[in-house]
Amino acid sequence: MKKRGFLFRKSVDIAVRAFSALAVALAAAAMLWIFWELFARGGAALSWSFLTNPSKPYGIPDGGVANALLGTVFITSGAAVLGVVPAVCAGIYLAEFRDTPKLSAAIRFAANVLMGMPSVLSGLFVYTVMVAPTGRFSGLAASVALAVIMFPVVMRTTEDMLSMVPYALRESALALGMSRMRTTLLIVCRSAGNGLLTGILLSLSRVAGETAPLLFTALFADSWPTDYFSGPTANMPVLITEYSTNSPFAAMHAAGWGAALTVTALVFLVNMTSRILFREKHHGN
């Protein structure tokens, strides 16, 4: 190893430490900057009528985002209904049934790869499977696309959470004569309940703002989302995209910022709720 003077080493160390503090400050500043722009530009557009009126084409007054907001809630809850139960079951298989280690490893690998898969490909997949054969864009197709994105995330968190439940708990339940199914569902899943809920909510907050898959599945409509099962459905992310890229009008841009602020607030509300849930669990133990 090269011999270096004490002063040189000390100054390199100080420089690196300054850089690392700067890096954190930069990341935090980027976050604050994005939020500041969101509040400054989106706050002006927010009003009660903005949140309660449906969206309207440019030029017609009193446009809002209510239909898109409702559509996003529909699509996201649809994804939860479709995706959560299979994903939790899949996680249970990985955590509780250890008699096929090779298969489990392959499934775990597939889930990890799926987690990093570009979301736009999930949109393509659902387009081919659901939209192209029926010839109809629908909110339901969008829910399926989001469920595909959620599935591996919830599955892996479920496995992690169930693996943290102590073995003695399972053994005592089985020793009392409970069946395997009741042990898993009533004892193991219940004691990991908060963790499971956190995982589900976090993945929901992630897919709620997901845009790319919705471009091929839900499209957009200025109407209320009554056609959830059979036709284009209004939703926030596509509304933001349309208003800010396909419109030259400042009024639409302002509405887009308002919608962006609303979506971010929604996403953060869910995100924070789940984090607090998890923290409480830690305190409880």
Partner: peptide
């Protein structure tokens, strides 16, 4: 600060797009 960095990951990508564009 760790939470602040983590929050960057929670912002939807379309918001990054808007911020980038405008």
């Amino acid at each position: 600060l760790g939470h602040a960095v983590d929050l960057l990951a929670a912002i939807p990508s379309v918001i990054y797009g808007m911020w980038g564009l405008f």
